[in-house]
Amino acid sequence: MEKKKQKSIHKTGECMLNDKRIKIIIGHYGSGKTEFSVNYCMKLADENVKVAIGDLDIVNPYFRSRERASMLESKGIKVISSSLGHNFSLALPAVSAAIVGPIQDPEYQVILDVGGNSIGARVLARFFNDITDQGYDMLCVVNTNRPETMDVEGIVYHVRSIENETGLKVTGLINNTHLLRDTTVETVLEAQKIIIEASEKLSIPIKYISTLEKVAEQLPEGLEGEIFPLKLYMRDAWM
């Protein structure tokens, strides 16, 4: 069991390095984009590559990746958020132009943590040319316990509306279905069936299955998508 777990984590790292240099994380709001993005950065930083995260969330006032800036920066990750700084607490759509630096720098692995829904994704239009010049993966985080993405139609609708808004193509789905600490193996596997169907309909592969470490250990082998064990960085112990 322990051996299998080690192998799975190692493979996650390899798989992440196979993703395009620019990784855009989108999805319905509340599906877990920020938790996935922060985890992705932390894992990538272990692979001895230069990592930058652009917190492009102009929709939410709380629970944005910039809240964990000091933790990320202590791992050597470059964190770029508002042009007014990470701690500027205001619902202002101010995105720092500094994010263009790592987008254009071929040495950087870039994670763009985008705000929810097509409205949150609209901010990508500003970076369209740079992103398409460099090549990208756009990964859609899906949680089928969110009321709007509970079924295939909901998932397809969200993928299409974000694609239409941004002019960019979703290249992978992430099964991030959870009920926070109540998540079980069944939670993930039930969702996987729905997401496989959505994946076929969209002709977009499932890239990752991201879930709590304790659940990841128990998932069966042979599922579509790399198993991506998550730590809950965004939620304090009392939440």
Binding site: Y29, G30, N143, N145, R146, P147, M150, H178, L179, L180
Partner: peptide
């Protein structure tokens, strides 16, 4: 079944 909701959304739904 349980769904995952943001507090503010849940207020509207309730």
């Amino acid at each position: 079944a349980k769904v995952l909701m943001k507090g503010n959304e849940a207020i509207g739904a309730a």
